[in-house]
Write a protein that binds this DNA or RNA. Sequence first.
DNA 1: GTATAAACGAGACGGTACGTCAGGTCTTTCT
DNA 2: AGAAAGACCTGACGTACCGTCTCGTTTATAC
Lengths: 208, 208, 208, 208
Amino acid sequence: MSSKFSEKSEELYDEACDAKHAGRPRCPVAHRNILQAARDLVAEVGFAGLTIEGVAARAGVGKTTIYRRWPNKSSLVLDAFFEDISPPAGFADTGNVREDIRRQMRKLVKELNGPTGCKIATLLANGQFDKDMAEAFRARWIEQRRAEARDVVKRGIAQGEIRRDVDPDVLVDALYGPIYFRLLSGHAPLTPAFADALTDLVLSGLDD
Amino acid sequence: MSSKFSEKSEELYDEACDAKHAGRPRCPVAHRNILQAARDLVAEVGFAGLTIEGVAARAGVGKTTIYRRWPNKSSLVLDAFFEDISPPAGFADTGNVREDIRRQMRKLVKELNGPTGCKIATLLANGQFDKDMAEAFRARWIEQRRAEARDVVKRGIAQGEIRRDVDPDVLVDALYGPIYFRLLSGHAPLTPAFADALTDLVLSGLDD
Amino acid sequence: MSSKFSEKSEELYDEACDAKHAGRPRCPVAHRNILQAARDLVAEVGFAGLTIEGVAARAGVGKTTIYRRWPNKSSLVLDAFFEDISPPAGFADTGNVREDIRRQMRKLVKELNGPTGCKIATLLANGQFDKDMAEAFRARWIEQRRAEARDVVKRGIAQGEIRRDVDPDVLVDALYGPIYFRLLSGHAPLTPAFADALTDLVLSGLDD
Amino acid sequence: MSSKFSEKSEELYDEACDAKHAGRPRCPVAHRNILQAARDLVAEVGFAGLTIEGVAARAGVGKTTIYRRWPNKSSLVLDAFFEDISPPAGFADTGNVREDIRRQMRKLVKELNGPTGCKIATLLANGQFDKDMAEAFRARWIEQRRAEARDVVKRGIAQGEIRRDVDPDVLVDALYGPIYFRLLSGHAPLTPAFADALTDLVLSGLDD
DNA sequence: GTATAAACGAGACGGTACGTCAGGTCTTTCT
DNA sequence: AGAAAGACCTGACGTACCGTCTCGTTTATAC
């Protein structure tokens, strides 16, 4: 990844710490305070309403301290978001791949219906205006979950539960895409029933 | 629709014209110039980089003239976008619903791969920050296309090409969702091959 | 004069007013308030301690309003200073040129011993760091007074009170220079006695 | 002298060296490098444009090393200036005091026309904003030269070349003041001809 | 015709936030 | 314990736009 964003939010600081720098090390408390302030402010005023000055003031920190660590608002918010987003929860392994997928889809819908969904929508949206943001979001959110799902699909193929000629990437998109689409477009609600209906449809096809 | 956006870009002006106002009528040339300038500038500097002052300057118009007609940047850009976006192109009617869908999917992918795709992604993204914008986008883009697609699906059900118990809304999302997801996320390209594979998958299911 | 400073402090505003500008005219109250605030703040915190933000805040005015009218701190302070500095007080005309000069020298020393002296020293000092400032100061303070003095000297020559071969410019410098030098350097006080002694010395020479 | 400036630039360092301090002694190379860097930078970007950070960077030295030795920018620059300013060159002693003065005036004008003049003007100007700076400048530049000149004048009086009732201080100011005034004000050039004319005028008076 | 009314372009207004810079202090590691 | 490095907080910089507000002008209807 050649993004300007750190793979994990801790890294920026660790990097600075591990190296045998001369000079005063970056203050880890400031780091935490900034991220917390960013999180709070996004919750209060939204991403668009968030300002670096506001974050600095709330964190009790100079603006330069923020600019020294993050190149822009997006990257800061990204780190702030991911610090309290749970890691990919993992598929169950019931032996029945279709059942595993069904459960995972319900779980995803449930998660995206809460505050996480709001954050994800915001990040995805901001990715349209910021290439690095988009790249970081893909690496830290989308790809991790897709990889997992792809593995399950492959297991399903190996076990004969899924047709041999199905492209796992396409299948994963067929399952996830409609959910994210509803999340962003809002033309219809993200219900468990939708998750089930969608899973059934994709897994069973349209034939009688 | 209770949006602050006009359904058609002309309306605001017509409204002002039809009424037997005293006073100077709004200048239709200014209207056109503003929309054109907005379009040009979005193309040049992107939505985020677009400013009302820039539009006014490029259109040879005072800022007030813009603020008199649109309440904010989003609504202006929305009107500007939709003025040169083609109406829903329409499904073919070959008699074979599955074939009609397949063709339509390819057409959509092709359209979204060009400048229209960029605009749609931008609008969808901005919808996350502006409720009215989102509502207007749903009404003027998404719903029009979904309605059409739903009709075709219903035709398919009536003709026995599609299972009776399929929810048309879910099916439409299963088809469209993955495409918009790739458009926004960019984790994989929008190729005709993807359109075909996706259509096949959704229409035929995963069983052997 | 090709300086960026106005010859008289009023001019900037008058210019804007007199001309058949389109657009909202500059607010004369703001103009006054800014200059007053600048004057007050220089008195309170000194030139070095004065900030544009401070002036804006005290004047109840946006920073841009100041930047729209003055290119920098120096030029603002210059205008502020000159608004309450008396015009060159004028030489007496007793018929005796030497007496006229003697009186004028005393008057100058007296003036430079008060707050005006402090301002003049500041302006002269800032001229070292700002070419335009220096130019404006020469035009609005020094040259006006030198011109007057030169005329008196010429009168003295015409009346035979002063040697025919004296260069008026040199004579004027010989009179004024030492006073400004003491003002700036502070190595000795600016007393009326000094004014008299200096005048006598320069006018009468060193011979017995 | 109660100034915060050292009388001679070496002293601060010598102090630290001579004393039987514990700890690492101050590096003399750093001292020289800092002064050299300050000198270079003043020449390149002027006093106003000079920054402590810039000096530190150019000298290859930490900012703290500078702050440990000089309390502020002015005092550093003062030391830097005086390190390469020649000591008062001294009056000639031709037996004729008036001739000695004439030669000295020409020499001064010549010196002040070069880079030294620029430095002197800067120091004098900064003295307006910094009392200690002014005091140090008076002690290290002005008074040294005035003392010398006063002695010559006294010699002139003793030899009967100069009127007995002339105040040497006033006479010295009458000679030097106009030169420094032109240096600072810039209303007229500092030419040898001016030096001669001024000397003649002051020494001979205005009478026929 | 002459009011009256509204839109026009221009541009000044008070603000907010930007991202940068330098100040002077503090804290680390190395010598 | 001093030196170099570099992070810290502070506060001002000058700029860009925001959305509002005069201006004087133009272009319509209404009296």
